[in-house]
Write a protein that binds this DNA or RNA. Structure first.
Length: 801
RNA sequence: GCGGGCGUGGUGGAAUUGGCAAACACGUUGGUCUUAGGAGCCAAUGCUUCGGCUUAUGGGUUCGAGUCCCUUCGCCCGCACCA
């Protein structure tokens, strides 16, 4: 009988669907396990071979947990708002809602073909009004708590998508999505105050089990730095506050620099002798795109503000003030004190503009380069700080600044507040109206969801306004506060809105009175294992942690953190080792693979291809090895013989393999788990028979990886019920080790032979075995044994002269 | 520049965390069965002058190093004038 994967897979997929085999139970007395994968964006291209890798991995975890007796929630849904759908809809003159439905139908069909054990009753779609009602509700809570606010500011604007981007969406100065040019534009935008959570987003990482690289990326992205704000005087009589992480070098501050956009320049207008030059520089800086401004190794440019000087608070010295675009208006106070002797950028600028360079930390050679080391070196040229270490000097100068009202300790972050509005159609409408009298007013929660109105022409406008602004009937409304005339907000939310809380909705997807019931939230929280792409580390993952913490603060969710454990998978590359892309022509279509080899082989291969956390190239030949393994597995039916126990020859191998597969699944080592099963099946074929007990264990081990074939074989072998309802096999630790082992014998660190001894043999017994070996005896003859190292079950190393 | 990761056969990759390097697979070669083989089965497969030598490179620590420490070279990812 042949392994007819097509018939088998169809049969069991239909059975699972019909019987709702993998629906999470509502029985809250059972121990729960919540496994989560990032829900896909249902693009028009359909599923990619990259999708099944993380999905299969957590499917394996979920299936194993079910066999271990857990009530498992393993849900899926679609993150369907967003630009690609809208762009496709415009190009093909179909409404984005229609496109979304088509794409989701295709994705669902493809996902089901993979045999993933999702709970299909809990499927969600972020574009459904019943879903985005709660996205809007959360926004209103943020608004009511002062964490959503509207602000006129310079934002990143993609000239090609005609839309505002978050900092996280600008990569190397261009649009993350379309690689279009990004320019700065001053616009009034909705902002979310994620910076208020900066400390907690860093500190609470200690309470969760995330892989290290995720933690470090988030910490670096938030970019907390400790320093001081220092108040400089000016010859204008006003103050200019700067932020520095090196207040210890205050005596070495020989000039100051302000960002070109700094508003103080206006105030000093009449005193600046070269005002025209200053304005010209500022305008030139504003015209530069982000890409130009961040270009590598760029020459420092700048203009001195003639006629105005800064006054160093510590010694009263007057120092020049420059404007330069190497100082960012958005970080710190938008102005710095420059210490060229101890900062590379200031050094470069000072050399070019001929500023003074005063060494205040001894230990370097400042005629050659800035000395930036904080560990070694003692303070010099710094009056009361002289002789102190950098650390001590920081402490002392901050004390001095505080006592004299000239500054204080300060913590700064690279993280900015989250630009939350988009001028596009296909997103959640922001549920706010603007009233001349009352300002920005939340619409009543009873009016949620605020549905996206139908619109014939949803192309983005050239003036940067949302397409919704064209719907004057919709825009003009009454103020919920005073009843007077008011206008609706026409911007929509970014794609990151709906995905910032979707994992909560799975817990109770049909609830109409809350985003999920208290009971469901209590039972299922937190997510036990969340796997997703590294590319979301500083986007979705950070955003959703922020929303979750806010929901925790207002008493909606029961945990401070959403995800107890976070792992990340590597990409599947093309056969050429490059990222798969249409233009490279190296794309592998999962439908073709399933058609040729079946879903079980595809699943096995994607797990076997390499280290789960690393990128791995697709190989159209290697996959055959996995197909062969499943063919051989199916062939075991022909070797089946009676026997309710393990056969003596294979007993230890079975115990070891159960232990290995069980452990490897928990530690993401799916590739070695499969290697272990392959090694086991090779031994079974050597023996040419398999007992019923052995078959039952083998099938259950393989089931999470290859669910269809194992279900079919379970039935054909006549085991009771479905394998999906069986129990995970256990093992006996004492049977994982053989009684007799072969160990290596080294002489002076070099491998010289092997001996066979009892696993628990002591050193004397091992040496006896060495003596009994002719070859080893010859090696040792005439030599004096100086020392013997014996590690039980591993090695004997004899040091002999 | 800063941060993180990596470098093992012809290929993808293993190695109980300092204890027999190359598990498992792909590929290749030979054999077998076949009208046929892009199927199955069996065998071989790091290099070797058969003494040995091998984990990018050179050094170190150790009885013992792919694993730990330092040098050099190379690759990938993230951030990027954050004061």
């Amino acid at each position: 009988m042949d392994y007819n994967f097509k018939a088998i897979e169809k049969k069991w997929q239909e059975t699972w669907d019909r019987e709702k085999t993998f629906a999470a139970k509502n029985d809250r007395s059972l121990p729960k396990y919540y496994a989560l994968v990032e829900f896909p964006y249902p693009s028009g291209a359909g599923l990619h071979v990259g999708h099944p890798r993380p999905y299969t991995a957590l499917d394996i975890v979920s299936r194993k947990k079910r066999l271990e007796g857990y009530n498992v929630l393993f849900p899926i849904g679609y993150d369907a708002f967003g630009l690609p759908t809208e762009n496709y809809a415009m190009k093909n003159h179909i409404h984005p809602a229609v496109v979304t439905k088509q794409n989701i139908d295709r994705f669902r069909k493809q996902l089901k073909m993979l045999g993933l054990s999702f709970d299909w009753d809990r499927e969600i779609n972020t574009t459904e009004p019943s879903y985005y009602k709660w996205t809007q509700w959360i926004f209103l809570q943020l608004f009511k708590h002062g964490l959503a606010y509207k602000k006129e500011m310079a934002v990143n604007f993609c000239t090609s998508c005609k839309v505002v981007l978050a900092n996280e969406e600008v990569v190397n100065g261009v649009c993350e999505r379309c690689h279009g040019e990004v320019v700065r534009k001053v616009k009034s935008q909705w902002m979310l105050a994620i910076t208020k959570y900066a400390d907690r987003l860093i500190d609470d990482l200690d309470t969760v089990d995330y892989i290290e690289r995720v933690k470090t990326s988030q910490i670096n992205w938030i970019g907390r730095s400790y320093g001081a704000e220092v108040t400089f005087g000016t010859t204008q009589g006003d103050d200019l506050v700067v932020f520095t992480t090196r207040p210890d070098t205050l005596f070495g501050a020989t000039y100051m620099v302000m960002a070109p956009e700094h508003e103080r320049i206006e105030a000093w207008k009449d005193s600046i002798e070269n005002y025209d030059e200053v304005v010209a520089y500022r305008e030139a800086a504003a015209r530069k795109s982000d890409l130009e401004r961040t270009e590598l190794n760029k020459d420092k440019t700048g203009v001195e503000l003639k006629g105005v000087k800064g006054i160093n608070p510590v010694n009263g010295k007057q120092i020049p003030i420059y404007i330069s675009d190497y100082v960012l208006s958005t970080y710190g106070t938008g102005a710095i004190m420059a210490v060229p002797a101890h900062d590379d950028r200031d050094y470069e600028f000072a050399k070019k503009f001929g500023c003074d360079i005063i060494e205040v930390v001894a230990g370097g050679d400042i005629s050659d380069a800035a000395f930036t080391d904080c560990e070694t070196g003692a303070m010099t040229n710094s009056e009361f700080l002289n002789g102190l270490s950098v650390e001590e000097a920081k402490k002392k100068i901050i004390e001095w600044l505080t006592e004299n009202g000239k500054g204080h300790q300060k913590i700064n972050y690279k993280l900015r507040d989250w630009v939350f509005s988009r001028q596009r159609y296909w997103g959640e409408p922001i549920p706010i109206v603007h009233c001349e009298k009352c300002g920005y007013v939340a619409i009543p929660e009873s009016e949620l969801p605020l549905e996206l109105p139908p619109l014939a022409d949803y192309e983005p406008t050239d003036n940067g306004e949302s397409p919704l602004s064209k719907l004057t009937d919709w825009v003009n409304t009454t103020c919920p506060c005073c009843g007077g005339p008011a206008e609706r907000e026409t911007d929509t939310m970014p794609q990151w809105g709906g995905s910032s809380w979707y994992y909560l909705r799975y817990m109770d997807p049909d609830n109409n009175d809350a985003l999920a019931s208290k009971e469901a939230l209590e039972y299922w929280s937190p997510i036990d294992w969340y796997n997703g792409g590294m590319e979301h580390t500083t986007l979705h993952l950070l955003y959703s942690r922020f929303w979750h913490k806010f929901l925790y603060d207002i008493g909606v969710v029961p945990t401070n953190e959403p995800y107890a454990k976070r792992t990340s998978h590597g990409m599947i590359l093309g056969e050429d080792g490059e990222k798969m892309s249409k233009s490279r022509g190296n794309v592998v279509n999962p439908d073709d693979v399933i058609n040729e080899y079946g879903a079980d082989t595809m699943r096995m291969y994607e797990m076997f291809v390499g280290d789960f956390e690393k990128a791995a190239p697709w190989s159209s030949t290697s996959i055959k090895g996995c197909k062969r393994f499943l063919d051989r597995s199916f062939g075991l039916l022909g070797l089946l013989c009676d026997g309710a126990e393990y056969s003596p020859e294979l007993e230890n191998d079975f115990h070891r393999t159960v232990k290995k597969v069980s452990g490897d699944i928990e530690t993401l080592k799916f590739n070695t788990a499969i290697a272990g099963m392959m090694a086991l099946i090779n031994k079974i074929y050597d023996k040419k028979s398999i007992t019923r007990k052995e078959m039952s264990v083998f099938l259950r081990l393989l089931n999470p990886f290859a669910p269809h074939i194992t279900e079919e074989m379970w039935e054909l072998a006549g085991f009771e019920g479905q394998i999906a309802h069986s129990v995970w096999p256990d093992y006996d630790e004492s049977k994982c080790v053989d009684n007799v082992v072969e160990i290596a014998v080294q002489i002076n660190g070099k491998l010289k032979g092997r001996i066979t001894v009892a696993a628990d043999a002591d050193q004397d017994a091992a040496m006896e075995a060495v003596e009994a070996d002719d070859k080893l005896k010859a090696e040792l003859s005439g030599k004096n044994i100086v020392k013997t190292i014996y590690v039980k079950g591993k090695i004997v190393n004899i040091v002999a002269k």
